[in-house]
Each structure stands twice: as structure tokens, then as C-alpha cells.
Lab assay of single mutants.
Amino acid sequence: FYCSMCNVGAGEEMEFRQHLESKQHK
């Protein structure tokens, strides 16, 4: 899983979902 807007990668879907819901996500 990879967030191109934030340049952030996650190994698991749960981690990626937490990123999308976090304040760090743009």
C-alpha cells in the first residue's frame, strides 16, 4: 500500500487505513 500524495508506504492495509485517517494525510 502506498500513498503517493504523502510519499508514505504501509506494509499492511490496516496501517494504510490508519494513515488515511490520520492528520498526517494530506
Rank of each mutant, 00 (worst) to 15 (best):
1 F>Y: 08
1 F>Q: 06
1 F>K: 07
1 F>E: 03
1 F>D: 05
1 F>A: 05
1 F>R: 03
1 F>M: 12
1 F>I: 05
1 F>C: 02
2 Y>I: 07
2 Y>N: 15
2 Y>Q: 02
2 Y>V: 01
2 Y>D: 07
2 Y>G: 01
2 Y>F: 10
2 Y>A: 01
3 C>K: 03
3 C>D: 01
3 C>L: 01
3 C>I: 00
3 C>W: 00
3 C>N: 15
3 C>T: 00
3 C>E: 00
3 C>F: 00
3 C>V: 00
3 C>A: 02
4 S>A: 08
4 S>T: 15
4 S>M: 03
4 S>Q: 03
4 S>G: 05
4 S>K: 14
4 S>W: 01
5 M>L: 12
5 M>D: 06
5 M>N: 08
5 M>Q: 12
5 M>A: 11
5 M>Y: 11
5 M>I: 10
5 M>T: 12
5 M>G: 06
5 M>F: 04
5 M>K: 14
6 C>H: 00
6 C>F: 01
6 C>N: 00
6 C>M: 02
6 C>K: 00
6 C>G: 03
6 C>P: 00
6 C>S: 02
7 N>E: 15
7 N>H: 13
7 N>C: 13
7 N>R: 13
7 N>G: 15
7 N>W: 04
7 N>M: 14
7 N>P: 04
7 N>L: 11
7 N>Y: 07
7 N>A: 15
7 N>I: 01
8 V>M: 14
8 V>Q: 15
8 V>H: 15
8 V>A: 09
8 V>N: 04
8 V>F: 15
8 V>W: 14
8 V>S: 15
8 V>Y: 12
9 G>D: 15
9 G>V: 06
9 G>H: 12
9 G>Q: 14
9 G>K: 15
9 G>L: 09
9 G>P: 08
10 A>M: 11
10 A>Y: 15
10 A>I: 10
10 A>E: 10
10 A>H: 13
10 A>S: 12
10 A>Q: 05
10 A>P: 07
11 G>E: 13
11 G>Y: 09
11 G>V: 07
11 G>F: 05
11 G>C: 04
11 G>M: 06
11 G>K: 14
11 G>N: 04
11 G>P: 08
11 G>Q: 08
11 G>W: 05
11 G>A: 07
12 E>N: 10
12 E>W: 02
12 E>G: 11
12 E>M: 07
12 E>T: 14
12 E>D: 11
12 E>F: 06
13 E>R: 10
13 E>I: 07
13 E>S: 03
13 E>V: 02
13 E>A: 04
13 E>F: 02
13 E>D: 10
13 E>K: 10
14 M>A: 11
14 M>L: 11
14 M>Q: 06
14 M>Y: 05
14 M>F: 07
14 M>N: 05
14 M>T: 07
14 M>P: 14
14 M>K: 13
14 M>S: 10
14 M>E: 04
15 E>H: 14
15 E>C: 07
15 E>A: 07
15 E>K: 10
15 E>V: 08
15 E>P: 11
15 E>Q: 14
15 E>W: 01
15 E>S: 07
15 E>R: 03
15 E>I: 06
15 E>M: 00
16 F>C: 02
16 F>Q: 13
16 F>D: 05
16 F>L: 06
16 F>A: 10
16 F>I: 10
16 F>Y: 13
17 R>M: 09
17 R>C: 11
17 R>V: 09
17 R>T: 13
17 R>A: 13
17 R>L: 11
17 R>N: 12
17 R>I: 06
17 R>S: 13
17 R>P: 07
18 Q>H: 12
18 Q>F: 02
18 Q>W: 00
18 Q>R: 08
18 Q>K: 14
19 H>R: 03
19 H>W: 00
19 H>M: 01
19 H>K: 07
19 H>Y: 00
19 H>C: 02
19 H>G: 04
19 H>T: 03
19 H>S: 04
19 H>A: 02
19 H>Q: 03
19 H>V: 02
20 L>P: 02
20 L>Y: 05
20 L>N: 10
20 L>E: 15
20 L>W: 01
20 L>M: 06
20 L>D: 03
21 E>L: 07
21 E>S: 09
21 E>C: 05
21 E>V: 04
21 E>T: 09
21 E>F: 03
21 E>W: 00
21 E>A: 08
22 S>N: 08
22 S>V: 01
22 S>P: 00
22 S>W: 00
22 S>H: 02
22 S>T: 14
22 S>L: 05
22 S>C: 13
22 S>R: 03
22 S>A: 05
22 S>E: 07
23 K>A: 12
23 K>S: 13
23 K>R: 04
23 K>V: 14
23 K>F: 11
23 K>Y: 12
23 K>C: 09
23 K>I: 12
23 K>G: 05
23 K>L: 12
23 K>E: 00
23 K>N: 09
24 Q>K: 14
24 Q>F: 04
24 Q>D: 15
24 Q>G: 13
24 Q>L: 06
24 Q>I: 13
24 Q>N: 11
24 Q>T: 04
24 Q>V: 08
24 Q>S: 08
24 Q>Y: 11
25 H>E: 04
25 H>S: 02
25 H>W: 00
25 H>P: 01
25 H>Q: 02
25 H>A: 05
25 H>G: 04
25 H>V: 04
25 H>K: 01
25 H>N: 02
25 H>Y: 03
25 H>I: 05
26 K>W: 08
26 K>L: 14
26 K>H: 15
26 K>A: 13
26 K>Y: 10
26 K>T: 14
26 K>M: 12
26 K>C: 13
26 K>F: 09
26 K>P: 12
